[in-house]
């Protein structure tokens, strides 16, 4: 035996796994982006992100099947729904709790996710459904690598959303105000920014991002109330690995998680969550603020 590299590694279809991983990672990144956005604006880490996304995806499903709307229309309407839904959650629940301890928001958002889980089961039932394909047609071929139409759409949507969001936070007054709130609430308030409005907006946008993931992952996997459980964990891992305080970090973390997930899923599918957990712990022990996040000397 002269070969040092185990066969396992050389035999992997790396190109294909990379493309699949990036598509999956884009979806993780979108949800992670929402988590980080909510965390940055409201200092709340939401454990309901997966379930709000699942709920929104069911709404999209209803629009697509019961109302027979075209996918693009249902997609936009669902994003709007999720936005309003997220803002409403912020108004009705989050605003009422004291966020002086991290415990309260964690408990309340866990509670929210349970309610949504139950409600979705109630309304739509627990049977596993197939979600209508947004795009049909032959896949694209890049050499030996196959890119399905759906994956192409995922890349496109992610790219467009990220560009729009980048421009929003860079150039629009509202986006700049949101960043100001994230940087320094007190100073932002003194400058006349309405914290309450920004919090609601952060929740709305963050929730809408999750909904996008839901609508694009449901055609790959399936549709049922537990559809986002694993996805949300990966998105969490992505957000934490990238750094909870960094929006670009969420994207980097998401893509990274997607690739790891795709490779691990190919080799030892049983361990996908375990690897995600190990990755969280590993990154945080080496870089407590995440890959791109800031880790400051805590002011005493």
């Amino acid at each position: 035996m002269l070969s040092v590299t185990p066969d396992i590694l050389t035999d992997l279809p790396w190109g294909q796994l990379l493309v699949n991983g990036l598509a999956l990672g884009s979806l993780y990144a979108l949800t992670a982006f929402g988590i980080v956005l909510i965390f940055k604006t409201t200092r709340v880490i939401t454990f309901a992100q997966g379930e709000t996304a699942m709920f929104s995806t069911f709404v999209a499903f209803t629009l697509l099947t019961a109302f027979q709307l075209p996918f693009a229309v249902a997609f936009v309407l669902t994003m709007l729904f999720a936005g309003v839904f997220g803002a409403l959650i912020e108004r009705v629940v989050i605003r009422r709790i004291s966020t002086t301890t991290v415990l309260n928001p964690v408990i309340v958002t866990v509670g929210l996710s349970l309610i949504l889980l139950g409600a979705a089961g109630w309304i739509w039932g627990y049977e596993i459904r197939t979600f209508p394909d947004p795009v049909v047609g032959p896949p694209f071929h890049l050499g030996t690598v196959v890119v399905s139409q759906l994956n192409a759409l995922i890349f496109l949507v992610t790219l467009v959303l990220m560009t729009v969001l980048f421009a929003f936070f860079r150039f629009s007054p509202t986006g700049i105000a949101m960043r100001a709130v994230a940087e320094n609430r007190m100073a932002a308030q003194l400058m006349g920014v309405s914290i309450g409005r920004m919090n609601a907006l952060g929740w709305g946008m963050g929730t809408a991002m999750g909904a996008v993931t839901g609508m694009l992952i449901a055609p790959i996997n399936y549709l049922d109330p537990s559809m986002m459980g694993d996805v949300a964990l990966k998105a969490f891992a992505a957000a934490v690995v990238g750094g909870l305080t960094s929006l670009p970090g969420a994207v980097v973390g998401g893509l990274l998680l997607g690739i790891v997930d795709s490779v691990v899923g190919f080799e030892v599918p049983e361990l996908r969550n375990t690897i995600a957990f190990a990755l969280i712990v590993l990154v945080l022990v080496v870089r407590p603020g995440g890959l791109l996040g800031r880790h400051e000397t805590k002011k005493v």
Binding site: I45, L233, A239, P288
Partner: peptide, 9 residues
């Protein structure tokens, strides 16, 4: 929050 996510994992 990091601890919450890590223990969940």
């Amino acid at each position: 929050p990091y601890l919450a996510v890590a223990t969940l994992g």
